[in-house]
Amino acid sequence: MHGFANPARFLRIARWLMPLCMGAGIVVAFGALGWGLLAAPAERLQGETVRIVYLHVPAAWLGMAGWMGIAVASFTELVWRHPLAGIAARACAVPGAVFTAVCLITGSLWGRPAWGTWWVWDGRLTSMLVLLFLYFGWMALSQASEASDGGQSKAPAIFGLVGAVNIPIIHYSVTWWNSLHQPPSITMGKSAMSGAFLWPLLFAMLGFTLIFGGVVLARMRAILANQQAEARLRRKALAAGDL
């Protein structure tokens, strides 16, 4: 475990893993989007509008996965104090927030033709909007705590764990409460979705997940490099002061 948290070993792996994730993700995700846009059928009731699902569902999954990543990294940071855990949490924030925003926007664009409204304050939509605001709050907090004492603060990690309570609420909002949003089509081991929609959707989810992984690895490399550059410059300034 400690060996994996070693920045030098991480860099050796990330150097080839990042382009691999990014490249494969771009091919699979955009291939699946083309499939969904051009080859997949229209739905019986919704018609052509159903094609928005190939963006909306992967974005929703990754918006939630981003916060789960922050929570797991925060837990690791608090218990084992791994040097890479805090970096991993910070690397998840921007892609998680971007996918949450894409989920909300595509959902709104889907809701207008399908439901007859851009937005309703039902359990699912409200809890997903709360997730976007949690991301904004987390990014502000991590920025502030980094500026004051060089990333040593535990506040973002605690916020990351507390905010994770929202994830099961988003997931179960459609089963606990009556909502305008539909219940999940794909549940453990079975699907209420015909294979003609299911397969392009699964490939889109795989592709976007790979892109997400690639972006997180690239962010981690960037944050690590910035920290190393700053440490080097600080040491140089100290050495120059000693002369």
Binding site: F30, L33, T49, I52, L55, V102, I105, T106, L109, W110
Partner: peptide, 10 residues
């Protein structure tokens, strides 16, 4: 709506 979604998402 589909075109707007894909433009924003992509």
């Amino acid at each position: 709506f589909i075109a707007a979604s894909y433009a924003i998402g992509v």
